[in-house]
Amino acid sequence: MGDVLSYAVRGLTRRHGVGGHSVLANDRIDLDVRQGEVFGVLGPNGAGKTTLVRQLMGLLRPDAGTITMFGRDVRAAPDLPARLAGYLGQDDLALAELPVATAVATTARMRGVSRAAVREVRDDILDELGLTAVADRPLARLSGGQRRLACVATALVGDRPVLVLDEPTTGLDPIARRAVWGALQRRRDTTGTTVVLITHNVLEAESVLDRVAVLESGRVIACDTPGQLKASVSGDVRLDLAWRHEPPADDPTVAMLAGLATTNGRRWTVRLDPATAREALGRLTTGAALAALDDFSLATPSLEDVYLTLGGASRDLERT
């Protein structure tokens, strides 16, 4: 068995607008998405994530570059993405006034689920995502999170080999979010479904993604497993300190940390190699500065650190 690529993207470039106001939304992007992996696209707002996935779905034409799905060129067969992939877009006006059950059932029919099977298929997915109780209510009358969850149900129904999801868990409560993650992993594990999902949530990226591409200003600045990415950028750990009141400036450890810290009021964040961090924390918690220390945390790098270290400038990634 060789590697089957669900998507192979080469040199993908797309510019929005014309002339002086144009923006290079995707800049020579290369990506391989293997069959049966949960592949994430992480980046801040405006990084070009949606432009990328809309091209993967054939909704935008690339200015340059190629996209193949399972070895077939999408330009030569424009109906390929619609047949192979279930898609969750950002807007749901087309479904807003439909009751949840009807939205799911009619979408299933449009993906070729037989009339005989549609009821069972619909009930299964509503049950899987915890939507059974609101099955008869129109999407527009649900809470934002439930409404998004119902849209996720329409994207998942009909068992496509590929799922392309633009921020599937935005606005969901933790339980619903976990239900979505579970549903995606179940499909990957049982049928080898490939998942491409956009996120700007670091926790999501670290929890569910097999691999992640980090996007910044239209470019892929890194692409690997979350663990490898974190290990690659830095061996540093992050030491966060919160002071009750001004720490003693004459303490040598405090002085050393003050020189390295980015500060936010009395909150300090310092990136250090693990040994130095441990030593510094040891001296702080046994020395005179302890009286001024309110709280501290010591953490290994997160994907947010990866993003910042790689040159990412924006700070609107979510952490929870």
Binding site: Q35, G36, R178, G192, S207, P301, S302, D305, T320
Partner: peptide, 21 residues
């Protein structure tokens, strides 16, 4: 993998990939 953030959130355990793809 070492991870930061509230890693106490219970997550679905990754299950081995299917053998045939």
């Amino acid at each position: 993998e070492p991870s930061s953030g509230p890693s106490t959130v219970p997550l679905p355990l990754p299950i081995p990939m299917p053998a045939r793809l």
